[in-house]
Amino acid sequence: MSRHADIVAEIPRLRRYARALTGDATRADDLVQDTLERALGKWPLWRPGNLRAWLFAIMHNLFVNQMRSPRVVDYPGDGAIPEMSTRATQTDVLELHDLARSLSLLNVDQREVLLLVGLEALSYEDTARILGVPIGTVMSRLSRGRERLRVLLAGCEPAETHLRVVK
């Protein structure tokens, strides 16, 4: 397949990751656009291999640079959740809002690992390569990120689930 068609085919995946990472639909698409433009500019350097990982690595570098700017607000609002299918129940919607809110409270390092592994299903090795860190760092961020997410989500549980019927 031609390289342009290959890149076009990766756009939905890049958008999904960017949405979960930034928490905002417009900012996510801006990040995807920057990534695509940077990828085309760097295309002469590209050697056949894992195109997806290469694009995610470009996105990671752009995102990290953005986050260094003091003007950037991480996870600005409620814009992360895509429109749910009509089949989604109210409970689903609430649960997913809790998830997005908890993601926003993770630090960026942990959020990236959690999303690359848990959402994008990338291997630990590819995740390490994308983030430019050793695999041990990926595993420790995954461990801490998961623990923190667990604690945050436990705190989001509606109060009635804590009530037990005492016989």
Binding site: H4, I7, V8, I11, P12, R13, R15, R16, R19, A20, D29, V32, Q33, L36, E37, A39, L40, A80, I81, P82, E83, M84, S85, A88, D92, E95, L96, L99, A100, L114, L115, G118, L119, R146, L149, R150, L153
Partner: peptide, 29 residues
């Protein structure tokens, strides 16, 4: 719980995969 969180991430963000790709992004590629 870790597995449930992975599933929730998919339920939360997979709908993005089905959204039409904005023109500006297809053009940028």
């Amino acid at each position: 719980e870790w597995r449930i969180h992975n599933e929730q991430l998919h339920r939360c963000f997979d709908p993005v995969l089905d959204e039409p790709v904005p023109t500006r992004l297809a053009e940028a590629a």
